[in-house]
């Protein structure tokens, strides 16, 4: 039990990921306001990005730029660049999602005059 807790506390970035992910999920489920749901969704997406970045974090590592071709490459000395690249792509995807979702919310607000899910459902009937 204590080992487990210790293992968690030694990896605060992963702990932060779990908290953010669940927090976002909770906001998505519990809040009736559509914009707040989107904020929850955004937190979930960002927490996954944090997870990616946490994977590549390394103590004492530097940016992966090869200074001279003559030296042998020491993989341990560089931070892994691939998760960063993936994160960058995922951010682009996330921004696009946010754009589409905000556009949808804007049209919903113009159509129904409210952002509260329960009120919208009432108006639908």
């Amino acid at each position: 039990m204590f080992d487990l807790i210790e293992a968690w506390l030694l990896r605060p970035n992963f702990l932060a990921f779990v908290i953010l992910f669940l927090w976002g999920l909770y906001i998505m489920v519990a809040r009736p306001n559509l914009v707040k749901k989107l904020i929850g969704l955004y937190i979930v997406q960002t927490s996954v990005l944090l997870f990616f970045i946490a994977l590549s974090a390394k103590t004492g590592a530097t940016v992966p730029v090869l200074v001279s071709a003559a030296d042998a490459v020491q993989a341990a000395a560089y931070a892994n660049p691939l998760p960063h690249v993936l994160t960058l792509t995922a951010i682009v995807v996330q921004v696009a999602t946010l754009g589409v979702s905000l556009a949808l919310v804007a049209v919903i607000y113009r159509t129904y005059g409210t952002l509260d899910e329960e009120n919208i459902l009432k108006k639908l009937e």
Partner: peptide
């Protein structure tokens, strides 16, 4: 619109 929004929320959760 409302269906699309629900689809968006769940679909994006799926992608995440």
């Amino acid at each position: 619109l409302v269906s699309a929004f629900r689809y968006l929320i769940l679909g994006t959760l799926g992608s995440s």
